[in-house]
Design a protein around this nucleic acid. Structure first.
Lengths: 221, 221
DNA sequence: CGGCGTGTTGATTATGGTCAAGTTCTGTGG
DNA sequence: CCACAGAACTTGACCATAATCAACACGCCG
């Protein structure tokens, strides 16, 4: 478990200790809720297999998607802000995950310097990514944003030793749109454009990246 | 110092200890750089007076503004991601600030549980804010985004007991634009629209919020 | 096979970007 | 103190991208 989610900075000893604090082998069906918005933050969650989305609602009731969580990634970090979760986390497909109770985590942070650093690193990375994404959102056109999204997915899957070029897109067009700040029509059209250019091959929920370099190059305008 | 930046969760004792770790009374002239992108993260910075911006460059060389730092706020948190800073932090006007060496901070986190929680809270908040901002960026029109920005500034100034309705806008239109994902022309036009509606009064760098409720209401569409 | 949710495609429109011409502001040196 | 230069800002005309509205196709479930 520690190997799955927090590999970098933990010593073998630390991993073992953390391992014992983790509740393993939990499951959720597609569409089920992992975290309820407004709930007290009492744990962090690590995806083992499947995927989930974090989403919030804007003041006008419109939903937006903050992040997707792939295997090995952590959900629930935003809860540190106020001690309660500010967004829903929902399984996109059958999900298996681990749960780390926050109390135990705080306890362990007392004694494990590597864990402290790792938690700060995780939060820092999320922050970094959110800020970069925000910048791209306004400076890059729809097609390039979508390309960037696919490349990002691909890289994250690769890190988990899953195929980087050939994957099932368990995220709906609608959720992609709400994540990239587009409409689902625009997502559809942009996918079409990438397909026509033969950068990618899409059939329904199945995607293949034919020219990842070309996709990545789009980001640089 | 601890009172300025980390007021919430620290005991008097903890504040005293943290206080001793802080290097105080540093100054910078307008336009000078507080943090250089790419530099090893060796400290966090807390603004005492004046203001600063964090900005990065996109792959095509275009600059974007990640955040503004007002008195009492912390700059440099993104450095936790990789142990080095990913963006420049630049003074927008004469700046006075404190510096907290990262080594000492990590040391203190070992013994001060309140400080641990506070650091996580700071990062969580930044994350939260970045994600919300990103959502608004695509779902809300330019005028409302600008209104939201002004209201946000106002609230942050208020927290530091500065006037919430009447302040000097030390941020250029260009930086506002780059922060909100707009062009400076659009910022100018939107300010004009708000002025014509008599929600605000702008003269050069000086702003007065005449109807904050109306501005805030714009956000809810 | 039929029905519904999901996705695609098309026509039109609106918002904000771009380019360009001015205006105000600020700071500097005579 | 005034004149001037450069930067910051404003305003206008035009245009491009993506939103909106709408019809239709596909795939997955019963």
């Amino acid at each position: 478990m520690a190997r799955i989610c927090l590999p970098a900075n933990l010593s073998a000893q630390e991993k073992r200790v953390l391992d014992r604090a983790v509740e393993r082998r939990r499951e959720l069906r597609a569409g089920a809720r992992l975290i309820r918005a407004g709930a007290r933050m009492d744990a962090l969650y690590v995806v083992r297999s499947g995927s989930a989305k974090s989403c919030g609602v804007l003041s006008d009731g419109e939903e937006y998607v903050r992040a997707f969580h792939l295997p090995g990634e952590v959900a629930g970090l935003e809860g540190f802000a106020e001690g309660r979760h500010s967004c829903e986390v929902v399984a996109l497909e059958p999900l298996s995950y681990c749960r780390i109770p926050i109390g135990r985590l705080e306890l362990l942070m007392e004694t494990l310097p590597g864990l402290r650093r790792e938690m700060l690193r995780l939060l820092g990375r999320s922050l970094e990514e959110a800020q970069r994404a925000r910048a791209e959102m306004s400076m890059i056109d729809a097609r390039a944003r979508l390309a960037g999204f696919l490349v990002d997915l691909s890289r994250r899957l690769e890190r988990r030793n899953l195929s980087a070029t050939h994957f099932r897109l368990s995220i709906s067009r609608r959720d992609i749109a709400r994540h990239l700040g587009l409409t689902l029509e625009t997502v559809s059209r942009s996918l079409g454009a990438l397909r026509r250019a033969s950068w990618i091959c899409v059939r329904a929920r199945h995607v293949e990246l034919l020219r990842p370099e070309a996709l990545a190059a789009l980001m640089a305008r």
